[in-house]
Design a protein around this nucleic acid. Structure first.
Length: 257
DNA sequence: CCACGTCTGCTGGTTACGTCA
DNA sequence: TCTGACGTAACCAGCAGACGT
């Protein structure tokens, strides 16, 4: 819509109440807390703003946030979906990108319901490239990117927020997988060491029995400690190393993860 | 210097729409 | 055509830091 068009048309403003579902627009619920039946059953004040004699008609329920700067979620007044659709529709008309038309569609009544925006491939690509350079945006970057992409700064902001969240989620998944593998490896290693310990214990018991049942005369003298392995030292026929050699997963990370 | 209120941007969680198998 | 799963835009609540008073 060009400037000339805007100058040559008259605005028509209407205000009223309606309890019927068809007028004003089919207000779709915005949040789950506001169920559609509840919306349909209530008396809704509505405001119509249109260009005389033709299709540029905007119908709004409750409040409309026409302040572009007031797009911060904290300060945004609650909008009905119809109101949101209205601002979206206004924006769409200003957008030269034909693909953006699919972002907001009208139903058979010519009434605009809120539809989810789908970013074009070009928009997504540029956003991705920008995200690779910096995962957060300062206000100037946001404004510039929004202008470049023909989007609202708020949309760019939301995209970056969601993108950061997705990145974090993916990283968490990767970390989770890594820890799972570590856990599996350590469990296997633990099992193997337990088995080894059992075998050593069995060996020790067998050796104890062997030396205990052997006649003292047949026992050889140990040349270094000068003790026999049998009756002379029944308690310690042989000993395990005082410092058992455990596999260190920290110093040998390849064995674990 | 400290307390307080406001503004702004972020995160985490959720909702709802569009797409696809 | 219907349906469920999935991706994601949009939203909300809460928090934290900067800033002015």
């Amino acid at each position: 819509m060009g400037l000339d068009d805007a100058c040559n048309t008259r605005l028509v403003l209407g205000l009223g109440f309606s309890s019927s579902p068809e007028t004003p627009p089919k207000a779709k619920y915005q949040t789950s807390k506001m169920s559609p039946p509840a919306m349909a059953a209530s008396f809704e004040p509505f405001l119509t703003l249109g260009l005389s004699g033709e299709g540029y008609r905007v119908t709004v329920t409750k409040m409309v946030d026409v302040n572009e700067g007031g797009n911060h979620p904290h300060r945004e007044e609650p909008l009905t979906s119809a109101a949101t659709a209205t601002t979206g529709e206004l924006y769409r008309q200003a957008s030269p990108d034909p693909s953006a038309v699919t972002s907001f569609s009208s139903d058979d009544d010519g009434v605009y319901a809120r539809k989810k925006l789908r970013l074009t491939k070009e928009q997504s690509t540029l956003l991705e490239e920008s995200f690779k350079q910096h995962s957060t945006l300062n206000p100037n970057q946001k404004q510039a990117l929004a202008r470049q992409l023909n989007l609202k700064p708020r949309q760019v902001e939301v995209w970056f927020q969601n993108r950061r969240a997705r990145t974090k989620f993916k990283q968490t998944e990767v970390d989770c997988e890594f820890l799972k593998r570590c856990c599996e490896t350590l469990t296997n290693e633990n099992r193997r060491l337990q088995k080894e310990l059992q075998e050593l214990k069995a060996l020790k018991t067998a050796a104890q029995h062997f030396y205990a049942n052997m006649p003292a005369a047949t026992l050889a003298m140990c040349p270094s400690c000068e003790r026999t392995g049998g009756a002379g030292s029944p308690k310690k026929p042989f000993s395990m190393p005082s410092k058992p050699h455990f596999y260190n997963h920290v110093t040998n990370p390849s064995a674990a993860c």
